[in-house]
Design a protein around this nucleic acid. Structure first.
Lengths: 339, 339
DNA sequence: AGATCCCCGTCATACGTATTACCGAATGCG
DNA sequence: CGCATTCGGTAATACGTATGACGGGGATCT
């Protein structure tokens, strides 16, 4: 009732004066040597005339495959996931696959009736940035985990976030910083645990290095508050290492509120290198994560998996991008003090 | 071959010692008065034991509906579309529908074989921010256009961008601004045409109002260049009205490059009120567009359409959000500024 | 000319589900 | 006790496609 009934291959057959099988053969491209060119043409014409489109549901049922994969992400509001999709879709299209996106149904809003999303009409799943234990649902569906750490038997593609964080800490250490503040994302994801660990390790290995830490939600005001707490504690840090770029934006606000110049009085670093990083003033020193490449590599792995191979874990290195928000600590900044 | 064959309703029937019909009845919930509670329970147990999940393809084929709608957006990298999805998914879930997302296949990368995406297994389409003439593809699929202007017979939900822009211009006029610069997005979409028109109209109605305009792509550096051109022309504007928040970020950079204080020497406004608006310093005066509400209203309209009704066009008003980037124009004769 | 082969197509079927029509047995009623 | 009614469940079918099994007729070969 909802949709007007569309022409079927049977209608096309009648229009062209052939059998339904012939229509299917011709339109399926398997007709070489089975159907005369003339008949094939007339079938195509008839299909065109009627505006025939194969019914995907029937096709899927018959073939047992949908040539569609699902990309699941925690949220679409984070600027990080757009490129992941783009990369995945690019690779998928090259193999005749489509990609659909869905978010985790943890909104407490969706009726829990459906296992995830509402689709099972899917050949495989690309699961991004999830907790490893949430993977139980994919026991029956070929899956690749993205940005989620070790996957307990499930193929994975990850960023080299530990190396990225070490690069940041190394850069800051080389500038002369010793008192580090870590504005950490209060989110239980592998990537943030790895970042915290790597930072702690590197600072501990630095002679005289001390590290304070505070936690916040991933939004500007929450990050600003956490940064303020760190900066107003006794023996305040000379640099705020932020778990991502958005948090860094909050740190900027804290610095401004305290009348601190960035990077003259306080260095700030981010992570991810999203659009925001270059929109800020001064532009943010951060680590670029190849998000689009993550999607592409993940899709490649998933297609391999569907083909019966066993893709091995991949790690995509991040790249330290030094911009304007880091400088040697204290009055050593070459820029004059503002305010 | 790709997926291991999963249990069917027939398997469940055998396990429970009943017929396939009974399984379907029980699991479909239509069994009241047709099947004894004891049998129903044994069927459910068997299904649970086997881990049975209905085959969606078969279900879709049988029912002729997928209870899934497609949300098409120009790009997922823009921060604007996440909330649209969220709103749409929320309403859809409440009605037992799922939402999948796809971008327009204009990447010149995907094989043109598939009409759009690769799916036809869809009950309806929510098409966001498209050119009206690109809608031809949806002749056969129930569709609602979002943020795309008048839809030529297709139901629409739009933002009141014209009113929003008039609010901005009115606010600036009230502050005393007369020389306006418009940093316009060089994108052929209804929303930007409407913004430009509304601004031009309002400035023209302002005694002594003059408007200059330059065009840019929607990225920071391109916007900065356009803003620089406007600001270095003779008789430069005292305010830059930007077509969206990201462009405004570029304008900030231009102001900084020229040594202009915002808002002391130059006022700047954005549009959309994305995350970026509050991350900038000073925080951006802009117009908030209820993106999540757009998705929700659009989905409501689409569900009405699927139910056979004819939803009427809706317009969602934007809201002027005055923050810190606007102020009365500089101390008047302040033109001889160093470059 | 008769047998053979190949070219062009068609028939029939299966994929897994939802639903309608049907049916035997048990029960209620007069 | 005979008949109607309800209960509890099954058989059959259709959705639209893809494909393996099958076949008819014309041309070729001997």
């Amino acid at each position: 009732m909802p949709a007007i009934s569309r022409p079927t291959s049977k209608d096309v057959a009648q229009e062209a004066g052939v059998s339904q099988s012939t229509v299917s053969l011709v339109l399926g491209g398997k007709w070489t040597g089975r159907v005369s060119p003339a008949t094939a043409r007339s079938v195509r014409d008839a299909a065109e005339r009627l505006g025939y489109r194969p019914n995907q549901a029937a096709r899927n049922l018959r073939l047992g495959t949908t040539r569609t994969v699902l990309l699941m992400v925690p949220t679409l509001t984070a600027p990080f996931f757009g490129p992941v999709y783009t990369g995945a879709a690019r690779v998928a299209a090259r193999h005749g696959f489509g990609v659909v996106v869905s978010t985790w149904p943890d909104d407490a809003e969706g009726p829990a009736e459906s296992p995830f999303g509402s689709d099972e009409a899917i050949d495989g799943v690309l699961a991004s940035s999830i907790a490893a234990d949430a993977l139980g649902r994919f026991r029956e569906t070929p899956a690749v985990m993205l940005d989620s750490g070790p996957g307990g038997g499930v193929p994975t593609v990850d960023f080299g976030v530990a190396d990225g964080m070490r690069a940041i800490a190394g850069h800051l250490g080389a500038l002369g910083h010793r008192r580090f503040g870590h504005v950490a994302a209060g989110v239980d994801q592998w990537t943030f645990r790895a970042r915290a660990e790597a930072l702690a390790g590197t600072v501990a290995a630095l002679p005289g290095g001390v590290l304070s830490r505070d936690t916040c939600a991933i939004d500007v005001t929450s990050a600003k508050d956490a940064a303020l707490r760190l900066l107003t504690a006794p023996g305040p840090p000379t640099v705020l290492v932020c778990d991502d770029d958005l948090i860094a934006a909050g740190a900027y606000k804290a610095a401004r509120a305290l009348g601190l110049d960035v990077p003259g009085d306080l260095s700030i670093t981010g992570f991810d290198d999203v659009l925001l990083a270059t929109a800020l003033e001064p532009e943010l020193t951060t680590v670029r994560l190849p998000a689009e490449e993550l999607g592409a590599q993940g899709m490649t792995a998933l297609l391999d998996l569907l083909a019966g191979e066993r893709p091995e874990p991949r790690v995509l290195p991040g790249e330290l991008v030094v911009r304007e928000s880091t400088a040697p600590p204290g009055e050593g900044g070459d820029k004059g003090r503002r305010v």
